[in-house]
Design a protein around this nucleic acid. Structure first.
Lengths: 225, 225
DNA sequence: CTGATTCTTACGAAACGCGGACGGTCGCCG
DNA sequence: CGGCGACCGTCCGCGTTTCGTAAGAATCAG
C-alpha cells in the first residue's frame, strides 16, 4: 500500500487509519518518489493525490498505469466533472474528493481490493532466487518442487518473498500477515519456525529466513544463490 | 536537527526548547550556510524561516528538497494563502506561522518525526567510504563483508554513518541512539569500544571512530580512503 | 605531577530466541 | 454422527546473547 500525498496532516491521518486496518503503508510526498516506490516496492494498491508538487498526480497515475495494473485511488480537491474525467482517463480505479473521512478511504480501499481479488486479475507470479511464488494458486515452489505450506505459513512466507532483504519485527509481521493490531508475539516466532522447517536445508541453522537478533526476521538470499 | 533563523531571539528560544526535548540542534542564520549544513551534516529534520537574508527560505527549501527527502518545517511570517501554497510547493512538510509558541514547534517536530519513523518506507541504502549501510535490512558492510553488529552497536554506528565528520558528546549519543533522557554515560563509552572492536583494523588505535578528547566521539573517514 | 578523562576488562542480570509440547478448533472421511 | 488428523495459537524451560554497570588501569592536559 503506497500513499502519495503532500499535505502532512492528510497523510498522517490516512496512513494511521489504513495501518490500523491492517495494511502495510509506505508513503511518498511527491510524484518522483512515488514513481520510484511504485516500481521498487510493488505495492498492492496506491492512494494518489491529484495535486502534487513536481509531477502532477494524474501524470503519475498515467505513468504507473503504463507499467502496471495496480489499483489506484485518486484524491481530488475539487469534484468538477473535468477532474473526474481526467482521473478516469488517467487510469484511476476510483476517486475521492477532499475533504473525505478517513473511514471512507478505508472502506474504498477494502472494496477495491476485494474487487481486484475477485477479479480474474490474478496477482502476478514471480521468481526470487530458487523460489517461485504464484499468489493466485497459492503455491510456492523451491527449485520447481512445490512446498507443502499451510495457509498461515504461505501468508507469512509470501509476504517475505514480496519484501526481501528487509528486516521486520514481530509486531509488523503480526499486522501485515495476521492483520492483528495486538497479540502474542510468540505466534510469529512459532510460525517462522514452522516455515523454516519446510524451506531451509538445515532448519537448525537458517540461511534464508534469518533472525535479526533483538529485532525480528529477514528474508535473505545470499545463502541460496 | 537544523534550525535556520536570522532573528537571534527566535533562534535562541526555539533551539533551547528543542534541545530540552532531547534533540541535537545545529543552527544557521542565512540561507547559504543552511544549504552547506544541510549537505554536510545531513540532519534528520530542518526548521526553516521563510524570510532570510540572502537566499529566500522557500528557495532554500526547494534546493534542499532537490537533493534530499529530509522533513522540512517552514516558519512563515504571514498566514496568507499564497505563502502557504508557496511553502507546500517548495516541498515543505509542515509550516508554522509567526508568532508561534515554542511548545507548538516541539509538538510539530515530534509529530513529523513520529510519522517518518512509523512509516515502513524503507530508508535508502548508501555508501560511505568503505562502508555501506542498508537500514532496511539492518546490515552494515565493510568492503563488502557484512559486519556482525548487535542491535545497539548497529544503531550507534548507523547513526554515526548518517552524521559523519561530526563530533557528538556522550549525552547526545545517549539521546539520539538510546532514546534516553538521562543515564550512565559509560554505557556509551563501552558500546563505542565494542563497535571499534568490530570495525577498526586496530581497535587499540582507532582511526575511524575517533575520540574527541574532552568532548566525545566522531566518525572520521580520512583514515580509510 | 596531578586531576580529569578515557580505556579496558569482567561480571551478572535480563532479554531473547528456540524447541518441545499441549490443547482447542475445524474440516474431512469413514 | 463420530473419530481422526491437520492446523494453529499458547505456554514453559533451556541455552545463548546482549548490555548496563562497576572498578581498576592507562592516557592526556595543564
Amino acid at each position: 500500500m503506497l500513499i502519495v500525498e503532500d499535505d502532512p496532516t492528510v497523510l498522517e491521518v490516512a496512513s494511521t487509519y489504513l495501518r490500523s486496518a491492517g495494511f502495510v503503508v509506505t508513503a511518498a510526498t511527491d510524484g518522483f518518489t512515488a514513481l520510484q516506490l511504485a516500481a521498487s516496492s510493488s505495492p498492492d494498491l496506491i492512494v494518489l493525490d491529484r495535486m502534487l508538487p513536481g509531477i502532477d498526480g494524474a501524470e503519475v497515475c498515467r505513468r504507473i498505469r503504463a507499467e502496471s495494473a495496480v489499483p489506484i485511488i485518486l484524491l481530488t480537491a475539487m469534484s468538477s466533472t473535468d477532474d473526474r474525467i481526467d482521473g478516469l482517463e488517467a487510469g484511476a480505479d476510483d476517486y475521492l474528493t477532499k475533504p473525505f473521512s478517513p473511514r471512507e478511504l478505508v472502506l474504498r480501499v477494502q472494496s477495491i481490493l476485494r474487487r481486484s481479488v475477485n477479479d480474474l486479475t490474478p496477482e502476478a507470479s514471480f521468481d526470487l532466487g530458487p523460489f517461485s511464488l504464484d499468489p493466485a494458486a497459492r503455491i510456492i515452489r523451491r527449485d520447481g518442487r512445490e512446498l507443502a505450506l499451510s495457509a498461515r505459513e504461505f501468508d507469512l512466507f509470501s509476504f517475505l518473498l514480496k519484501h526481501p532483504r528487509q528486516a521486520f519485527n514481530r509486531e509488523q509481521l503480526l499486522r501485515a500477515v495476521w492483520h492483528w493490531e495486538f497479540g502474542d508475539l510468540s505466534t510469529v516466532t512459532v510460525t517462522v519456525r514452522r516455515v523454516r522447517e519446510k524451506i531451509e536445508d538445515d532448519p537448525t541453522d537458517p540461511v534464508i529466513l534469518v533472525t535479526v537478533w533483538g529485532v525480528g526476521y529477514r528474508l535473505d538470499l545470499e545463502g541460496t544463490t
